[in-house]
Design a protein around this nucleic acid. Sequence first.
DNA 1: TGATTATATAAGTAAAGGATTATATCAGCA
DNA 2: TGCTGATATAATCCTTTACTTATATAATCA
Lengths: 104, 104
Amino acid sequence: MPSIDEMSESLKLLSDKTRLTIMALLRHKEMCVCDIVDILETTQPNISQHLKKLKSGGLVHETRRSQWIYYSLNVDDKPYVKQVVDQLPSMQAKIEALKSQGCH
Amino acid sequence: MPSIDEMSESLKLLSDKTRLTIMALLRHKEMCVCDIVDILETTQPNISQHLKKLKSGGLVHETRRSQWIYYSLNVDDKPYVKQVVDQLPSMQAKIEALKSQGCH
DNA sequence: TGATTATATAAGTAAAGGATTATATCAGCA
DNA sequence: TGCTGATATAATCCTTTACTTATATAATCA
């Protein structure tokens, strides 16, 4: 049974628009930092810092694969987070748009 | 289908520990401001301001009954909010503790 | 090894947000 | 009408936080 403290911490991570959009993107597939930067049209340090918060809050998982670091969702152990993420709108259009000029 | 903007706004309301606790309390029953103040052991203006935010975000509903204003949950139209609220821990113990020295 | 690309970290800034104190409004009652 | 209790609003303070710019680390490749 999650405590109010745990829940409010996770919800704070989800309450930022940029981070919530990152979660919506990762729902489709794992992505590297530069993919997310391109799609969200912001700076690389901005995204890196948001990802760091999501990671230390246990909401995403990272894997290095040569020079790229791929991030993926890690929400299966938090039902109240998973249910929110599952209801995020599709980002398919934005992902398609990226494909044509992918970051690598 | 809710937008990222709508969802992040609701989640921001839930992400504060005081507001999340208020939602957990209201899950049990409607309550007036002085009840919540007593249980959370904070000041009346603090609770009033949090309630105002919850109300303008559409997460609670208010009813005046003589000099008391009762607040109750209003989450049935927002599934992603309802699912979070449904998983909040029980506040039964705190509510019981209040009964013995109720605010009116 | 040096150059390039991907990512992280650090420092600074500006804006948002929660809490407190003081005051105003509103309802009930003598 | 005046008093008391319940709630709301205003103003202020302090902390948190998101973003930017600059720099550091790490990996690949020539």
